[in-house]
Design a protein around this nucleic acid. Sequence first.
DNA 1: AATTAAATTCTTGTATACAAAAAAGTTGAC
DNA 2: GTCAACTTTTTTGTATACAAGAATTTAATT
Lengths: 217, 217
Amino acid sequence: MDVRRADHILDDLEQMIVTGSFADGERLDEIRLSEHFGVSRTPIREAFQKLVASGLVEQRPRRGVFVVEPGPVELVQMFEAMAELEASCGHLAAKRISSSELRALEEINNLCKQAVAENDADQYYTHNERFHHLIYDAAQSSYLRDLAVKLQKRLKPYRRMQLHLRGRLEQSMSEHEAILSALTKGDSARAANELRGHVAVQGEKFHHLLTHLNAKR
Amino acid sequence: MDVRRADHILDDLEQMIVTGSFADGERLDEIRLSEHFGVSRTPIREAFQKLVASGLVEQRPRRGVFVVEPGPVELVQMFEAMAELEASCGHLAAKRISSSELRALEEINNLCKQAVAENDADQYYTHNERFHHLIYDAAQSSYLRDLAVKLQKRLKPYRRMQLHLRGRLEQSMSEHEAILSALTKGDSARAANELRGHVAVQGEKFHHLLTHLNAKR
DNA sequence: AATTAAATTCTTGTATACAAAAAAGTTGAC
DNA sequence: GTCAACTTTTTTGTATACAAGAATTTAATT
């Protein structure tokens, strides 16, 4: 089986899980899925293990793997961890970011600004992601970056909810400016704090998240 | 195959890798290992996937899995990430730690002190680990805690090196006091900074790490 | 002798077969 | 009708078989 096929199965399963093709707590049926993808159980089980590693499913020995939709508590804790990872990347990036990286960051930020002006949430989403990835890279600590990227990916479906909060784009934009300023000045403590606050889910954002979470069920 | 057997294989493989039973970059032979453990290739391949997830080995499609001993750069980055994770846990713990947890922390710290007085590095190592785990728990953010625990485990073999640095125990102890003080006062910024500094590999510690790393090859 | 192409061997990845455990269904006693 | 024990079915976990790609060896040509 060529690699693309195997990856395709994994990607498809991830997609199916995050888009809600399975109920919360549902068992993933090896046989059904192997029939669905036209392969044997072996590659399905392999994909399962990767899903376990990414935290999308939970494995109970001799029972199978079950999708785990994080509850409100888990979600808040994950966003909290994300905020801390971003803060850490910012902390390091403030000391290490190169002038060319800084320029790239400003460029992306301008694209964000433009998206806000056009009220284009999807465009903003894309550029925002790139903005944050640049900061992960600028931290020059690949282990930390990998953690941040992984969790960011995991939170993607929930982050999308946040975007449609009224006035969120404008506020997010001004937070970007503050982050950029701290990074430019090399103020690691402030960069960390700004990023933490930017990502953290509090106040209205928190309420909004819970509302949409309930709507999903 | 009962679960204990499967876990046993994984634990054994981990142990073999960290204790250097394999050369850096060596391919793990599925057939040899399946004979060694008296099982078929299937559970071996399953264990491989978990090793990949934990970062102990690298998988190259159609080639096999290869042990990856992190080089100096990777190691420093991993310690850096560890320092940031500890700082994050400390940051949250300072706000959330309960008085009973604080008491437990003080207790453990006294055991550390005792170990230092007796110059018992192994005892200190054990209590120190417990000290840090208590802080992870006090952060009340299970995702963050899991990250910290996982990386701590990964760095274990390298951390052991650090202990035998002359005067390290005493210095480490005074750092613990500072951490404890910050946590008691609820000063999250200081708790974070103290923990970051406590875990970070800099100056003599850095030199020591590199020396022992070279000695290993 | 060196280099390249073909052939062989070895290894991974997948399919299938089978064993053992868990779940579901059935029967019987109360 | 309910509950419990037994039987059947389903499902996971492991072993084995097989196909296809990678590595190695052999053979041939210059």
